[in-house]
């Protein structure tokens, strides 16, 4: 059975082919995973923290924010 990291890498490789603007990198994925591990719960605090971190990660990656 594949590990979560292996599955994520394979999906990223497949999905990146479908998008012309940008390739999601392994480093970015690691940051997403780190955020999910740090805030895994389905409650108001964790949900908010997750959304904030992922939002700023996407803004940074799309070159909008430093």
């Amino acid at each position: 059975m594949k590990t979560l990291e292996e599955v994520l890498q394979q999906s990223t490789k497949d999905i990146n082919k479908e998008y012309i603007d940008h390739d999601v990198s392994k480093e970015s994925l690691d940051q997403v995973l780190e955020c999910l591990i740090k805030y895994p719960l389905d409650n108001a605090t964790h949900n908010k923290k997750r959304l904030n971190i992922l939002d700023s990660l996407i803004l940074k990656e799309s070159g909008i924010e430093e």
Partner: peptide, 25 residues
């Protein structure tokens, strides 16, 4: 448009991973 495309791309990656991981499990 950039944020829309990238958030969509991330969502697709995780969505596909959930399907793969579940099927594999």
């Amino acid at each position: 448009a950039k944020v829309k495309a990238l958030s969509n791309q991330y969502y697709d990656i995780f969505s596909k991973s959930v399907t793969h991981m579940t099927d594999s499990a």
